[in-house]
Design a protein around this nucleic acid. Structure first.
Length: 825
RNA sequence: GCCGGAGUGGCGGAAUUGGCAGACGCACAGGACUUAAAAUCCUGCGGUUCGUGAGAAUCAUACCGGUUCGAUCCCGGUCUCCGGCACCA
């Protein structure tokens, strides 16, 4: 018997070349075809691909190739999120210009993606660091500004002392910089913000409009946006002419207020204490807190600390005088920066009241004899009946929330109100390798956007990378100097660059029309391709990237640019690739390099293993032995197809499954087609899809030993095997397709249908249970109805013996599967 | 602390709607081929008990309980692990 050697290296190079030469993956708008926009999160070009990339893009490629075979017009583009800190660090450490470093990396990673055989339309490749891209990034920023959604504000901001830059709240994880891990401090700086909070309501509500998104991701976004309903209430302060406005979610507890707390940064604090005996101690207290890092400031374990500021406020409900404090547990940037404190019904207020000896007045009765409202051990936060609350006594507190809010509105002391946890997005970065913010400051005219016809504002090249001090753009001799677009006088450019999360917030729109030099993207092309039908990427982007991208899309929709207001219809978040139960990382030393695996086993084996070892959304434990297994399977496929090639080439089309053996193979084949179709087209169950193909291959090995093997059936089996395996391992399948006499590429070949008839088995094995316990298996004809099934099963001698004259109380029959006989014990 | 998710053989995992638990693969063991090895092929492979044996009985999906003729699946409670948020008034 001939030996067939699976030369993956030769095969993969050959077909990659073929795809490239034929330009098979190029995509254009075809008005009559059903479009399918498939997108994987584009990578940061950090150097080489890691296994997480391989997994992400292999998953995407299976879907792309499958939907192409199903006749869809598939858009499957790739690009680079190529601005960012590592490039600048390389410049500082190695003296390489970020642009060179980045392009080297993109080149290397592009080659690796081609080696993996991912079907990308490279004609649409984009890199966010190219002026052709960031020109439109700047244009979009200008639109934000013109629509009042970009503004500059001086604020204490998160400051990473190591990266020497400002960070968004989202980039501070557990109080440390999410890039370098240094503890994040505070610094007062004037910074650009995008008003994402204007979109909070829609970003929340439209989560319901999304298609198939992991519920977990929706929930994370929901919590991040953090909508709270309640009321704003004005308290007067004795001897002070301005009202103190507070926000509360519990207007029902207004009668239980025993003190007030202002955030230390609250503008009233200085006014209220100026010139008095409290000024000095308050200033000391505020000073101590102001530059505390967020990790310390907001730690729940930090003891609550506060200071009386020498003033009293008046409760508008009952005229009660209550002292005014400042305290470390009240934040300036949520609500109004001031709270009413109700220690009886809020645990934080309770702790504070106990520490400082403040009154605790219960206003909601727990209706529980075990709780003594006059001697509370902790705050009572559940529902109950109103007490100590004047006209509202006796009401359920839930109802009192509404009634008291109405009362506030009628009497002009407050109103119903909604607050969000979401903050505006700080986008300024004191960095070089990012999109320059296209804003100009003029002494006379203030902040103005650069004229659109002058875009892009190019990054200057005469810049020093010292890694110290402020933005590197300040070291350019020419960059900041410009003229005012309004009055033509001398003016200065903004020297900060944008957070790179902006670049990735609209790249999916640019892919629709990647080479357009007139506009960011044409509305027509975007209308054809958008929204992204399937988006695939790591769950680590569940909040930031996905929220920002949704925000951008809504804004672009509002100004008439984007055809849709949600960018991603369906989302798949793939799991991490682990080795020895831990995330692969250089510091642990458990990294498996994709390049090594491809060299040793080929890209098809790497793809197959990664797709087979675990469902896409779950974590994947890397196993060298498992890779061997996948390699073995591809060898098995290669061998059997080669062995059967002659038979396949000479056989006619069509077959009749006559013998039992025919029917077995026919069944396995049709089941595999159905399973793979359902698994890819539906729930992305690639691991089970592959296992059904393995079963089919096992059936084929068994069948080919049959003396009376039907050539037509063998031909169908081999043909279908190659077709349904091809999305997973395209190179070997193209090779086998050619070997078995086909001329055209498999890319876009017609996906096979399956026969329902072949999936119906003639005989059924019926499980016989007595009182729910399995006792026997009886073979019957398949497709019997309840009566027929019971008759057939009860006719069986063994079943008769099991019943043995005892009373049958009940008979449960599940067609073709099971009978449960309930008898007297 | 709050909010989610998960727990199935030695391992990765399967069971898509409440109906044969452990598909498929890995590892392991035995065998065939070979001078030998690799490769390949065949067989076995959750636990316990009984049986010389074909086999039989029984337990088993983190733990305890419930609903049901029947529960990996539904409900209640407990434990463990993972993820998100974390003084948001």
């Amino acid at each position: 018997m001939a030996e067939y050697r699976y030369n993956f290296d030769e095969i993969e190079k050959k077909w990659q070349q073929y795809w490239d030469d034929k330009g098979l993956f190029k995509t254009e708008e075809l008005p009559d075809a059903d479009k399918y926009y498939l997108l994987e999160m584009f990578p940061y070009p950090s150097g080489k691909l890691h296994m997480g990339h391989v997994r992400n893009y292999s998953i995407g490629d299976v879907a792309a190739r499958y939907f192409k075979m199903k006749g869809k017009n598939v858009l499957h583009p790739m690009g680079w999120d190529s601005f960012g800190l590592p490039a600048e660090n390389a410049a500082i450490q190695k003296g390489v210009h970020p642009n060179i470093w980045t392009h080297d990396n993109m080149g290397e990673m592009r080659e690796q993606l081609k080696q993996l055989g991912i079907a990308y339309d490279w004609d649409r490749e984009i890199a966010t660091c190219e002026p052709e891209y960031y020109r439109w990034m700047q244009w979009i920023f200008v639109q934000f500004f013109k629509n009042g959604l970009a503004y500059k504000k001086k604020n204490p901001v998160n400051w990473c002392p190591s990266c020497e830059t400002v960070l968004a709240n989202e980039q501070v994880v557990d109080g440390v910089c999410d890039r370098c891990g240094s503890a994040v401090g505070k610094k007062d700086l004037e910074q650009w913000y995008l008003k994402i909070t204007d979109y909070a309501e829609r970003l929340l509500a439209d989560l319901d409009k999304l298609g198939d998104w992991p519920p977990k991701v929706k929930l994370m976004q929901k919590n991040w946006i953090g909508r709270s309903t309640g009321a704003e209430v004005d308290f007067s302060i004795e001897g002070f002419d301005k009202a103190l406005r507070i926000f509360t979610t519990r207007p029902d507890t207004l009668f239980g207020v025993t003190y007030m707390v202002l955030a230390p940064e609250h503008p009233f604090v200085a006014e209220l204490t100026a010139g008095g005996e409290y000024e000095a101690p308050v200033r000391a207290f505020v000073g101590k807190l102001q530059y505390m890092s967020d990790i310390d400031r907001t730690s729940t374990t930090l003891e609550k600390e506060g200071l009386f500021i020498g003033r009293c406020a008046v409760n508008p409900m009952n005229g009660a005088r209550v002292p005014v404090y400042i305290a470390n547990y009240v934040l300036m940037d949520y609500g109004t920066g001031a709270i009413m404190a109700v220690p009886a019904h809020d645990q934080r207020d309770f702790d504070f009241a106990v520490k400082y000896g403040l009154d605790i007045i219960p206003v909601v009765d727990p209706e529980n004899p075990d709780i003594d409202t006059n001697d509370l051990k902790e705050a009572f936060v559940a529902e109950g009946l109103m007490i100590n609350s004047g006209a509202f006594n006796g009401m359920r507190n839930r109802e009192a929330i509404e009634k008291i809010t109405e009362y506030l509105e009628t009497n002009g002391i407050g109103k119903g109100s909604v607050n969000f946890r979401l903050r505006d997005w700080l986008i300024s970065r004191q960095r070089y390798w990012g999109t320059p913010i296209p804003m100009i400051h003029c002494e006379n005219c203030g902040w103005l956007p650069e004229k659109e016809e002058n875009l892009p504002i190019l990054l200057p090249t005469d810049v020093a990378f010292t890694g110290k001090g402020e933005s590197p753009l300040t070291t350019s001799k020419t960059f900041s100097e410009t003229i005012c677009p309004e009055c033509g006088g001398k003016a200065e450019r903004e020297i900060d660059t944008m957070d790179t999360f902006l670049d990735s917030s609209w790249y999916f729109l640019r892919f629709c029309d990647a080479r357009n030099e007139k506009v960011a993207f044409s509305k027509e092309k975007a209308a054809y391709w958008m929204a992204v039908d399937q988006y695939i990427g790591g769950v680590e982007h569940a909040i930031l990237h996905l929220l920002y991208a949704r925000f951008f899309t809504k804004f672009l929709y509002d100004i008439g640019m984007s055809p849709v207001d949600e960018p991603f219809t369906n989302l798949l978040t793939q799991g991490m690739v682990l080795k020895d139960g831990k995330k692969m990382s250089k510091s642990i030393g458990n990294v498996v390099s994709p390049g090594d695996i491809i060299n040793r086993y080929g890209a098809d084996t790497a793809r197959l293993f990664i797709l087979f070892a675990s469902p896409p959304e779950k974590e994947l434990e890397w196993s060298d032995a498992g890779v061997e297994g996948s390699y073995r399977f591809l060898n098995r496929v290669y061998r059997i197809v080669n062995e059967l090639t002659d038979a396949v080439k000479t056989a006619g089309d069509g077959y009749k499954a006559v013998s039992e053996a025919d029917k077995e193979l026919d069944f396995a084949m049709n089941r595999a087609i159905k399973k793979v179709s359902d698994d890819i087209g539906g729930r992305f169950g690639f691991n089970t899809a592959i296992s059904s193909i393995m079963e089919m291959v096992n059936a084929l090995y068994k069948y080919k030993e049959e003396k009376a093997a039907d050539a037509g059936l063998l031909k169908a089996a081999v043909t279908n095997l190659i077709l349904i395996l091809s999305p997973f391992t395209p190179h070997i399948c193209e090779e086998l397709w050619q070997i078995t006499g086909h001329v055209d590429s498999l890319y876009g070949a017609k996906w096979p249908d399956y026969s329902e008839d072949a999936l119906v088995r003639a005989r059924a094995e019926i499980v016989v249970q007595i009182n729910g316990k399995i006792k026997e298996r009886v073979e019957t004809e398949s497709g019997l109805d309840r009566e027929g099934l019971i008759a057939a099963v009860c006719a069986d001698e063994r079943v008769k013996r099991l019943i043995d004259g005892r009373d049958v109380l009940k008979l449960i029959a599940v067609p073709d599967k099971l009978i449960n006989i309930v008898i007297q014990q």
